[in-house]
Nucleic acid binder design. Structure first.
Ligand SMILES: [Mn+2]
Ligand SMILES: [Mn+2]
Ligand SMILES: [Mn+2]
Ligand SMILES: [Mn+2]
Lengths: 220, 220
DNA sequence: AATTAAATTTAGACAAATCTAAAAATTATT
DNA sequence: AATAATTTTTAGATTTGTCTAAATTTAATT
């Protein structure tokens, strides 16, 4: 079956909200999509009719397994395009999302599988988020926030908590990118700031807020 | 200003019809877009309000210069994506059009200019059609049909009259592609078939219909 | 010039996706 | 448990793009 752009945006938004919320509400989804609760209710009826969501009025909703499958297809397209834009077209990391937001709706299966192959079957997008394979499977990340990292253990930056240009600017200035190896030397109790060290460069300090938005994995 | 997918498809269709028809009619456009004449009339009113077409009811229509500019932008996107699909993703020539039909509507200017650069500023798409540059300018082809080529003059295949998989199949079988150098040795009056020769390979015969769909340029 | 045929436009309807305002159901608070 | 606050749904409109059927205009034929 084939879905409209609007339907796809709803499905993807529900999928993302389900990841971090126990129950996804009408208001939450309306807010996420910059739309009105009444519009969400309308769309939920459509998605229910297509068996993409479980939905009983006044009692919440969630994606069916078919709905999740569709969502992963959209996310696959989105993240492959993001990878293409960053890797091949040299877009900055904060520019790729909006463009991928449109490209993700071009739904030729063959296009996406060929793109995947052309890109060398990348495992993560420019923000460190995993890319589902053509079966819809993707790595479940073992990443933790840098604020939770043990002292003096080397770890590698594997992703970010948000993709704003503000965060990108800061990371550029501090020379941190995905793949950077670093360790936490000290945690200051006063403001939870961290002293970190990258290889043999001089140590420097980062804020708690930044640390929480840096996802790291322990060195393999 | 920003245009809907429907508006863009109408603009592009009018542009293409204007190339080969003295006056573009409501019925002709309806036929081209697989829609109804009444729908065309509706859309013409919208496009006139946006100053993209000149239109007086019952008296025909044509693109304004602004309309042509928009059309060339869409055609630029379409052909750059076709080039990308054929060149980078190794799609066959008869598969690229339908996918580009969707991709052309992703209208980020920066995306297209970066894609153009990445592809090395190609001048023609996989069917030999010229790609407008970022100013909307493109080569005006001096190509003629192979059926009009003089006997014993070497020419180079520069494009095709249609992009069907049937034509592609035939050309593959005969080892003819864009760039192939050939000459016409003989024209048979009975059925207007042509004996042609490629380099030092044995000569062979092609139908009038095929000849008319092969565009060639005299050797530079 | 009158009639017929063809092309084009209008009138009115419909589906998709959205909205506002009001009603209904659920949840929280006294 | 009753009342108030919040959330969600319905009712009814609106916009975009499409359609069919009928009316109008233009073009072609007698
Ligand atoms: Mn989207
Ligand atoms: Mn991403
Ligand atoms: Mn199109
Ligand atoms: Mn083409």
């Amino acid at each position: 079956m084939n879905f409209s752009v609007a339907e796809e945006n709803y499905i993807k938004a529900i999928w993302h909200l389900q990841r971090y919320n126990d129950d996804v509400t009408t208001n939450l989804l309306a807010n996420q999509l910059n739309t009105r609760p009444a519009s969400v209710t309308d769309m939920l009826k459509k998605l229910k009719a297509k068996k993409l969501v479980h939905y009983e009025k006044y009692h919440g909703f969630s994606l069916t397994s078919e709905g999740k499958k569709i969502a992963l297809g959209i996310i696959r397209r989105h993240r492959l395009w993001e990878f293409f834009l960053a890797e091949k077209l040299k877009f900055d990391w904060d520019e790729v999302h909006d463009i991928a937001e449109d490209l993700e709706h071009v739904s030729s299966k063959k296009l996406i599988d060929k793109l995947d192959e052309y890109l060398g079957f990348p495992k993560v997008d420019p923000h460190g988020d995993p890319i589902p394979d053509n079966q819809g499977k993707m790595e479940t990340s073992s990443a933790i926030g840098l604020d939770e990292l043990e002292i003096n253990k080397v770890a590698e930056v594997s992703g970010v908590g948000n993709q704003s240009s503000e965060l990108l600017e800061l990371l550029k200035h501090k020379n941190i990118r995905i793949g950077t190896k670093l360790e936490v030397k000290k945690r200051f109790e006063f403001d939870q700031s961290l002293e970190i060290k990258i290889r043999n460069l001089p140590a420097f300090t980062i804020s708690e807020q930044l640390a929480k938005n840096l996802l790291v994995k322990y060195g393999k």
